[in-house]
Amino acid sequence: MDYIIETNNITKKYGDFIAVNSVNLKVPNNSVYGILGPNGAGKTTLISMLCTILRPTGGSATVNGYDVVKNAREVRASIGIVFQSRALDDILTGREHLDMHASLYGVPGEIRKKRIDEVLDLIDLGEKADEYTKTYSGGMKRRLEIGRGLVHHPRVLFLDEPTLGLDPQTREKIWEYITKLNQEEDITVLMTTHYMEEADQLCDEVAIINQGKIIKSDSPINLKRELKADTITVKVNKPESFVQKVKTLDYVHKVFEDDSTIKLMVERGENLVPPLVNFANKNGIVVESIELQHPNLEDVFISYTGTSITEGR
């Protein structure tokens, strides 16, 4: 199976409002796949349909080869879920949460203890594992929830906004865990996020969703490359003559002068740094510094939706 999740025009309507509009998704096995979009774009609705929490009003989807409506139970057995909102019981310990989850998912008793220890090791709860979760910090609660989603060796782990509301340090920690588990466990991760950096750093492939529709999906590198908008920033000893001459080069799309620095808009900038330096030398200009900048996903998002992700509806 190349694709662990496939959707075919999956749609969710609430009256006249179309929350998810004919989405076709193909998630490669063992990848980290991101669904990127602003709040209210339909991310959670989409993921909820794949998790069997919501029933689609149109189209279909398979997860691990099972239909999300007809074989809901098999789908449930194949997946682990970390909800956007907390889903912990204050008065149970971390270990008890994992144990309860293992029982509900039919993890055989003889391997249960070992598996729980493995997971506790992965999420680094340490001694807190045997304390009530009401004493946990936000990051620990999230880690416990991620760990819980893993206990029964699911084929797919769904993470709905895994770092929402966490401070930057904790967020980076969670990113580390997600990367680590994707390497150590035989698992596909499907996550939603509205943090650009998160999608950029973690995901092998990203689908951009806006107003219920998937606008574009590809790897973050390709998405950015497709914008054809790398920026090369240079400092030279003779700015005026450099600007004049560099404008004649056909691989330079635009030139901006900003005090002592010059910004050149180019495509595939990584290949153009050496020729630019040579070009300057040939014309008797000394390059003092040169810097290459790729566009970020925010730029990608703006170019496809016309709005920035934080302004989006």
Binding site: C51, T52, I53, R76, I81, F83, S85, R86, A87, L88, D89, D90, H101, L104, R148
Partner: peptide
């Protein structure tokens, strides 16, 4: 508290 979801899925 969302815990019912955890049981129901």
């Amino acid at each position: 508290y969302g815990f019912l979801k955890e049981i129901l899925v």
